[in-house]
Simulated scan of single mutants.
Amino acid sequence: MKATIGLTEKNTNAVSNELAKLLADEFVLYTKTRNAHWNVTGDNFHANHIFFENQYKQLDEIIDSVAERMRKIGHYDPKQ
């Protein structure tokens, strides 16, 4: 699918490469946050459990948004 948004193929490739880096960073952060959610302990268990859950849900939305932006400019996410 070719994007018709006024960017050259060279520019969409450059943007896609930067988005791929962002996607990778966000996915690592999502994984670490999800792990913290699963393994929280201590006196503030409930508050921390809810905190990490909210965080990984927000990160999930960000990841989805970045991957969709890549598709809009005609590229697939790197794991494809």
Rank of each mutant, 00 (worst) to 15 (best):
M1N: 09
K2C: 02
K2N: 11
K2Q: 09
A3M: 01
T4R: 01
T4L: 06
T4V: 00
T4K: 07
G6Y: 05
G6T: 06
L7F: 15
L7N: 05
L7S: 04
T8A: 14
T8R: 05
E9K: 07
N11H: 14
N11R: 14
N11I: 09
N11F: 03
N11K: 15
T12A: 05
T12K: 02
T12N: 06
T12Y: 08
N13S: 14
N13M: 11
A14M: 11
A14W: 13
V15F: 06
V15I: 15
V15Q: 11
V15L: 15
N17R: 11
N17E: 14
L19E: 02
A20T: 09
A20R: 01
A20L: 02
K21A: 06
K21Y: 07
L22I: 02
L23R: 05
L23W: 09
L23I: 02
A24C: 00
A24G: 00
A24E: 08
A24Y: 07
D25P: 01
D25W: 06
D25H: 08
D25V: 06
D25Q: 08
E26G: 00
F27C: 01
V28G: 03
V28T: 12
L29D: 03
L29H: 09
Y30H: 10
Y30M: 03
Y30S: 00
T31M: 07
T31V: 08
K32W: 06
R34S: 12
R34A: 14
N35R: 07
N35F: 10
A36P: 05
A36L: 09
A36Y: 12
A36Q: 12
H37R: 08
W38T: 04
N39D: 12
N39L: 10
V40K: 03
T41H: 11
T41Y: 06
H46C: 05
H46M: 12
A47C: 01
A47F: 11
A47K: 14
N48Q: 13
N48S: 08
H49Y: 11
I50G: 00
I50W: 00
F51Q: 05
F52V: 03
F52A: 02
F52S: 04
E53C: 03
N54Y: 06
Q55T: 14
Q55V: 13
Y56C: 01
Y56N: 01
K57G: 11
Q58N: 15
Q58T: 11
Q58C: 05
L59C: 04
L59Y: 09
D60F: 08
D60T: 08
E61P: 00
I62R: 05
I62E: 14
I63N: 12
I63T: 09
S65G: 07
S65E: 14
V66H: 07
V66E: 07
A67I: 02
E68L: 13
E68F: 09
E68I: 06
E68Y: 10
R69Q: 10
M70Q: 07
M70L: 04
M70A: 01
R71P: 00
R71N: 08
K72W: 00
K72V: 00
I73T: 07
G74S: 06
G74T: 01
G74L: 03
Y76M: 14
D77Q: 14
D77H: 13
P78H: 08
P78W: 07
K79E: 13
K79V: 15
K79R: 14
Q80Y: 14
